[in-house]
């Protein structure tokens, strides 16, 4: 193993120059990312920017037009999808849901529910839960597989404010206790910033990437979320008129602040 830097630790899951097309439209272009053990990585981006598609590509749920996805051998992952419609035609209690597909003991199920703050709903029907309760149950189920990697697509949708704060707290705790890495999608800038080790700003391609502090000062990020200052918007548009095909091979330097990690302090 090339022990060049600590950051070269084998990733749990990695995308390498991934492109995804739906029909003719390219939804993801040359996206590369890697999640290493114990990291909390957040993907940010506006609606339709391909966040869920990226997650689904990582899970092997959508075909890649180009590029590769690799995961560590025998990776245990817990997944909370953005949407899950439980059809009313299937009677399903929360307790029964937690045992899909791997059966878990009553004690483990109760502990998982207590951990996400919904201890009393084991006998309720999944289809009758509130949005926030449902989201917590999904997380409880993901935690039950003792994952090395938690993949969460907008996990706080439907949670109330205290619930949301507690949720990110919980993610931190889980990471701390189990060492699980977390890859999550979020819209919620400020909370996310506080809870993540690394932020990836996505808009069909990776616009910018780095620690929350670096990203929050990056003009691409500010433009994407309408926080544009100091002519950042102009810079952003200029940036996006370019084809993003210059990740490799060219020795020459670009004038664009494209590859993050250098702070735009101001």
């Amino acid at each position: 193993m090339p022990g060049v830097q600590g950051r070269r630790m084998t990733p749990l899951i990695a995308a390498d120059h991934v492109c995804v097309r739906f029909g003719g439209a390219e939804v993801l272009h040359e996206v590369s990312l890697a999640v290493k053990p114990g990291e909390i990585v957040t993907i940010l981006g506006p609606n339709g920017s391909g966040k869920s598609t990226l997650i689904r590509a990582l899970l092997g749920l959508v075909p890649l037009a180009h590029g590769t996805v690799s995961r560590a051998e025998g990776l245990r992952l817990g997944y909370v999808p953005q949407k899950l419609a439980v059809d009313r035609s299937m009677p399903l209690t929360v307790r029964r849901f937690l045992s899909l597909p791997t059966r878990v003991s009553d004690a483990a199920a109760a502990a998982a529910l207590a951990r996400v703050g919904v201890e009393d709903i084991g006998q309720r029907q999944m289809a009758a839960l509130s949005g926030g309760q449902f989201q917590r149950v999904l997380l409880a189920r993901a935690l039950l597989s003792e994952p090395q990697l938690l993949i969460l697509d907008e996990p706080t949708q439907g949670l109330d404010q205290p619930g949301e704060a507690a949720f990110y707290q919980l993610i931190e705790t889980v990471r701390h206790q189990t060492g699980a890495a977390v890859l999550m999608v979020s819209h919620d800038l400020h909370v996310v910033m506080a809870a993540s080790d690394r932020v990836i700003c996505l808009n069909g391609h990776v616009c910018c990437e780095g620690t929350p502090r670096v990203v929050s000062n990056a003009p691409e990020y500010r433009a994407l979320f309408g926080l544009g200052t100091r002519g950042a918007l102009a810079l952003y548009q200029h940036e996006h008129d370019h084809a993003h095909d210059h990740d490799h091979g060219h020795g020459h330097d670009h004038a664009h602040p494209h590859h993050h990690e250098h702070s735009h302090a101001g």
């Binding site: 749920l61 997944y79 999808p81 299937m90 045992s99 597909p101």
Partner: peptide, 19 residues
């Protein structure tokens, strides 16, 4: 049974669980 139920509930969840 378990795999069928999971896949019926959500193909995504089933796939993510290695089914």
């Amino acid at each position: 049974w378990q795999a069928l139920l999971t896949a019926t509930l959500s193909e995504e969840l089933a796939h993510a669980a290695g089914l």
